[in-house]
Write a protein that binds this DNA or RNA. Structure first.
Lengths: 207, 207
DNA sequence: TAAAATCTAAACAGATCAGTTTAGATTTCG
DNA sequence: CGAAATCTAAACTGATCTGTTTAGATTTTA
């Protein structure tokens, strides 16, 4: 149906190719994925695939771009500027944790780390639509709190990055390196609560 | 000279093989490295290489083990329990930043992230001798401070991870995804100072 | 020095993979 | 319908890679 790139590409099965490539690249990474696998997964002949994309690298870049944009959109709903930090921060932290612990978030992160040495534009896109976007939105909120006197922050961008980083504590490395998938609610909340407390102890204006 | 594994392996050029494999794996990753490249880099024939290691995978695991142990040793000098947090934390933060921004630190991290999905023992070893070791040592120090009343920490292990995470803020993603290599003293210090201030605002006992 | 251990270059087998080509089938649409 | 666009399976090229083998050279050691 709606082609993912603006009109330039043609053909009935374009979306199938994209979907198949997405599945296989996310599962196996760039080197691990074979074009035959992708064609099979997409239910499409290799010739068709190659009629859309000149080579594997370009196909991968297309998927990476789509995925990072998706990642950005999934977090689209902005932070409500009217709510106080005690409400907004735990909610934001929860979203961050849920995303970075998901199979999808982990797969994208793995590929971004592994391939950004070979393909700098992958690292750039991942950063812009992931950590970079989060930083932008969160720092905007923090700055407005600071202007209202609800928080006291001299460098909102740095503070935003600090908060995001605090949410990853313990759980992200455990998932990434130790394969831990059994992270329950209580543990997520413990990390978030501690991050919020740490953050507000420094940047809060309440006694 | 001193063989890296305990006596089981034999042969004059063992160390050359290790050195060559180290260079090539760190430069190109697991998939990117070819055994011919490694043999050439090591100045050794492929037959010799295969007389030491049954296959590429085992060779890689050996290198990964050596590298993570190295990583641990490089940070061997423990934290001086007698110094106050205002001295110890900036010094520790400085070490963390310097390591994770180094070419070597980045290369090891890239490989650990990329290969720990395929080789779980790589993720385990990296964690144990990297983030895990840091956590252990730092939390020990924090606990002793807490016992002395210099700090007020209920969960030293969590606090240790929080501090370490705070030191990575901004600089690590910029290096990893954006390829930024021009991080000067001032910027490192800015991150560290902010991390220490944030940490002490919550866990400090002064005023 | 002479046997034993270790190493060498180079060719080779077997597998995988990216990308192309062919000859034809199916779909779309005027 | 019928022509143009799109897709198909399958074979093929050429490259790369892991791991083995061969026949001999070099080094160690006794």
């Amino acid at each position: 149906m709606a082609h993912t790139t603006l009109g330039i590409k043609k053909g009935r099965k374009f979306d199938q190719v994209i979907a198949g490539a997405r599945t296989v690249f996310l599962r196996d990474g760039y080197e691990g994925a074979s074009v035959d696998d992708i064609a099979r997964e997409a239910g499409v002949s290799k010739a068709t695939l190659y009629s859309y994309f000149p080579d594997k690298r370009v196909l991968f870049l297309e998927i990476a771009a789509l995925e990072t944009r998706r990642q950005a959109d999934a977090q689209e709903d902005r932070l409500d500027i009217t709510d106080p930090p005690e409400v907004v921060l735990p909610a934001a932290g929860r979203k961050i944790i849920d995303f970075i612990l998901s199979d999808f978030g982990i797969a994208v992160f793995r590929i971004a780390v592994a391939e950004s040495a070979r393909f700098p534009e992958i690292g750039q896109k991942f950063y812009d639509s992931g950590p970079g976007l989060l930083r932008e939105r969160l720092s905007q909120y923090l700055a407005s709190c600071s202007a209202q006197g609800v928080l006291n922050i001299d460098d909102p961008e740095l503070a935003a990055e600090q908060f995001a980083e605090l949410c990853k504590v313990h759980l992200f490395p455990a998932r990434l390196f130790l394969g831990r998938t059994d992270v329950d609610e209580a543990e997520r909340n413990r990390i978030i609560d501690s991050a919020v407390a740490l953050f507000l102890a420094r940047y809060g204006t309440r006694s």
